[in-house]
Nucleic acid binder design. Structure first.
Lengths: 362, 362
DNA sequence: TGACCTTGCAGAAACGTGTCTGTCAACGGC
DNA sequence: GCCGTTGACAGACACGTTTCTGCAAGGTCA
């Protein structure tokens, strides 16, 4: 009347449990658990024997039972912003893909897996999965999801400096203001007299910080601001806004576009108005896409280093989960990288295609 | 000496359990469970009362305990192919992002969440998470992960027709052969005399089917094949291969590129050789990226409809998990869509920029 | 009036682990 | 020869649900 017998009575030969292993190896459940988890004081012979029997039976411990017992699931939530019913935004594809890829790798390397979750406050979907912690991308001010998670005692790390007094455990971000100022100086160095901005109407931190940095720079150098804003989640509106910007009477002779597709948008608009790039118009946009290395001309891009951000976010989160007293600060600023190509150099040394970047580059 | 008292003895006011709710509401645990899950036979008054007390205590059922008890976790694995240590391939970014986005939405709508997992056969990461089923993207022949999962009795649905005798529960794929034949006919109709192919050296099903379809088409119409193959996961190699293709003595007057970046690769190569698109060279590539609507000229692309594929894959999987006798076949073929732009029309009606696609389009 | 059904709810058995406590033998020191 | 110590293991409980079984009260019908 052993439990092994009971479980075998179920019509299916279901999965082998720890009891079956114990019975087959002629030891107790405790010994099996200790042998497989490397705990307790057992002679190596017993340990090896148990491991061999477990392998032979194809034993896989139940993740649910382990989670229930230990309180750790090995699962990390990855919250993505939503527009309407669809998760993710349109403009952040490449950034998000790179960031998620790096985060997945980093989590896997430490034995965790990522669960994709929407940034809605619907409890049913969130409480249906046991999380050890959560990564939040660009949380809005007073985000209800973050508050709820923190209230439950779960560590939350955000990609993007949290607005207001959002009580995140840690955060990682670029210095967006410094990045914008750097680009504006770069364009001015290349000979730009009037620099325009293609920006968004949304209120997220990235858009806000970048725009105010632009306005401050204009004020400092005494240039009138020349910018157009559009709803960044609308893939059509970017081309229209780019056209508007170049159609203005005070047409800029250099433009920085905050969003990924702005490069081709602006390039197309420039062609429509007969403007040569970079001779008549200098161009920079913020993008992680490699297509800008092969456009005509290749376009200078600002990389936010999503891979480094994804890695850092996960490391901070897992440190917090495991209670590691990390030496790293809970606020990490990842430097951006300006990849200078033909479109922002008034006198390019040559007109050859810039060499492709190596794949190891991060 | 109630359990509620016991749990309160723990220094933390941890989370309220079902026992606490039962005690606070003055009913039994059974009644709480039935009231919250809409089961059993309870008067509405009791149901409302229990719900209210649960809300007041901020009760959230433990996902781990529920999973252990019911055997369902509400978690679906999303397996991505890996190159080296990194998950995902470089060339499939836009496709994968769109597909994952649709899959996430579809899963969420039915109460499931997606877990990103690598296609390695390492047991430790797989057995650490309780899955109800798995989506596998482009599984290789004799994939050990798939075999292992099926052996455990988990349903597996693959994006991409499984090679060999891989025992998947269901699969979804495009008709890649028909798509290639359609493109070749389209290019021939536009006046192409010698059509070239930019393909990959990898052995995955997509590359294989597409290439053989091209070779068969060439044989049928009596054209000598003109193609270059390169390792698609290397972002640099594409530009080099495009250059090689146009440098050949038997230079093609039309090219189809199998991978996402091939459009800009080929466009750049064409400019280097002074070839006008579409006058001297017709161009089509397979891509989900919207940048090709704004290149100069806009490039005709083949869309594999990743959103429909992602949705279909998840629906089939959840149907299998929940034992729904679906009317849908277990093998679904999603039609591709050729988005015709200037680059493949020898006599474009006008040279205006093609209108951006509406965001609702799927 | 008893047999029988329905309603409203309580008790307790699982689910499969990890781990605390306890037992038994061997062993060494005094 | 007794006691404390240590090694190697077994028993039992707890994690927090869901659900099967069952009980009592009240109503219906022959």
């Amino acid at each position: 009347m052993s439990r092994a017998e009971t479980s075998r009575r179920g019509s299916r030969p279901s999965r082998a449990g720890i009891r079956d292993v114990a019975a087959a190896a002629g030891v107790s459940i405790t010994t099996v658990s200790d042998a497989l988890n490397g705990k307790g004081r057992l002679p190596d012979a017993t340990r090896r024997h148990v491991r061999e029997v477990a392998d032979r039976l194809g034993y896989r411990p139940s993740a649910a039972a382990r989670t229930l017992r230990t309180g750790k699931s090995g699962l990390i939530g990855l919250t993505v912003t939503t527009y309407g019913d669809e998760p993710f935004t349109f403009t952040e594809f490449a950034y998000f893909a790179e960031m998620a890829r790096a985060a997945t790798s980093a989590a896997l390397a430490r034995g965790y897996a990522l669960v994709i979750l929407p940034a809605t406050s619907r409890h049913d979907v969130w409480s249906n999965v046991a999380l050890d912690g959560t990564v939040v991308i660009d949380p809005s001010d007073q985000d209800p999801v973050v508050s709820e998670l923190v209230r439950q005692g779960l560590p939350v790390v955000s990609d993007g400096r949290p607005a207001g007094s959002l009580p995140v455990t840690a955060w990682v971000d670029n210095d967006h203001e410094a990045a914008v100022l750097g680009i504006l100086d770069h364009l001015a160095d290349a000979g730009a007299r009037r620099i325009g901005l293609l920006t968004g109407t949304t209120t997220d931190t990235y858009t806000h910080l970048s725009t105010t940095a632009y306005l401050r720079w204009c004020e400092r150098v005494g240039q009138d601001p020349v910018y157009e804003a559009y709803p960044a989640h609308d893939p059509c509106a970017g081309a229209v806004a780019a056209d508007r910007l170049l159609a203005r009477p005070d047409r800029p002779d250099a433009v920085y576009g905050l969003f990924d597709p702005n490069g081709t948008d602006l390039l197309a608009a420039a062609r429509r108005y007969g403007l040569r790039v970079p001779d008549d118009l200098l161009l920079v946009c913020c993008s992680e896409s490699t297509v800008y290395a092969n456009t005509e001309p290749p376009i200078t891009t600002l990389s936010l280093k999503p891979r480094r951000i994804g890695t850092a976010v996960v490391q901070l989160l897992i440190d917090a989960i495991e209670g590691v007293e990390s030496d790293d600060p809970v606020e990490q600023v990842i430097p951006t990288e300006l990849i200078v190509r033909t479109s922002s150099q008034r006198r390019p040394p040559r007109t050859t295609v810039s060499p492709p970047r190596s794949p190891e580059e991060r």
